[in-house]
Amino acid sequence: MKLKLDQHSPIYLQIIDEFKRQIARGDLRPGDRIPSQRELAMMVQVNPNTVQRAYREMELMGITETLRGQGTFITQDPERLAAIRREMASRALVGFVQEMHALGYGRDEMIEMVRGTWDELFAAQAAPAQPGAPPQHAAQSQRSGTEGGESRGDGRV
């Protein structure tokens, strides 16, 4: 797990955010094992108590489940996962809209520019995106990753 900690906000919150981000992007799939607390603490050289706090909060938020003696896993609850994705999207949106607003752009102009930039960036890609559809890899993972191909059960974060 690569963690870019900016250290200006509490580390435990940044650890939680990083897990949420990876879940929302589909890098972590439902049922994936995540590193043990000690492993993560070593990977990112963070105080074990800080990692413990992050894991405890994630458990309370329903992001992860800990099975005694087996480790900590990403929840399989589809509603929970969808909520995490919505939350991350809404955070990105608020940031974007605020920034554009500060630059003096109005609502319709902003929407127009989003369309334009979308086409510039993704025009090459064939199918028009359905509104609300998760990206390809995330969509697959929500079918619980049973289809063949890569396995992500290695606890990689």
Binding site: Q7, H8, S9, P10, I11, Y12, N47, T50, R53
Partner: peptide, 9 residues
């Protein structure tokens, strides 16, 4: 440490 980060940003 975490409290200082939180309180002072």
């Amino acid at each position: 440490a975490e409290r200082l980060r939180e309180e002072r940003g």
